[in-house]
Amino acid sequence: MAAVAAMDGPDERRDTIAAARAGDLGAFELLMRRHERLVLATALRLTGNMADAQDISQEVFLRLYKNLGKVQAVNALPAWLYRVTVNACHDLRRRRPASEPESSACDLVAGGMDPQTSLTQAERRRVLEMSLRILPEKERAALVLRDLEGLSTEEVARVLGSSEATVRSQISKARAKVHDFVERYFSPRERRRT
C-alpha cells in the first residue's frame, strides 16, 4: 500500500504507466492497486454478485494492459476504466442473462413476512439491490455512476457515450423506478387499497 501511496502524484502516475507500457508487471500491479476499487465496486453494483464482478475486473485489467498505449493522459484513465467496466457488464449480461428471476416488490411481500416487522437493515439492502436489478442496463449504469460512484452528469455522459440530457433523463427515470419499487415493497397494503 505504501507503493500505491507513492504513486499519487501525476508524475509518478505517468512514470508508472510508462513502465507498465514497457512491460514492467510490477508497475502494472501498482496501477491495478490504484484503480481496483473503482473497477470491482462498479462491477459489483452493476452485476449484483461478486463472482461476476471479479470476472469483469479481470477482463477490464487485461484490456487495460493491452491498451496501455492508447491511454495518453493520466487523468483520462478512470473514465476509460469506468467505460470499459460498464461495457464489460453489458457484454456479460448479453452472454449470460441474469439467472435469478426479476421479482417485483409485491411478489417479495407476498412471499415474505409482514414488511413493517422485518424492516431490518439487511432487508432494506436486499430490496435496494433488487430495485437496481430491475432497471434497464443504461438507467442502472447512469444511476450507479451518478449516485453511488459520485460522478458528475458530464462525466457520466462521457463514460456512457451519451449526451448530458439523455443521462439526466435516464437518472431521473431510474430514481423514480427505485423509489416506486421501495415504496411498493414497504407499503403494499396501502397501495393495494388505493
Partner: peptide, 28 residues
Amino acid sequence: TLEFLREAHREPIPDAHFAAVRARVLAE
C-alpha cells in the same frame, strides 16, 4: 432511500477479493 443505497454500497470490499483479481490478472 438514496442515502440508504449509498450507505449500503459504502461497505468496504474485503481485500481478499482485490487480491484474487490481481493474482488472476498477473497470472494470465
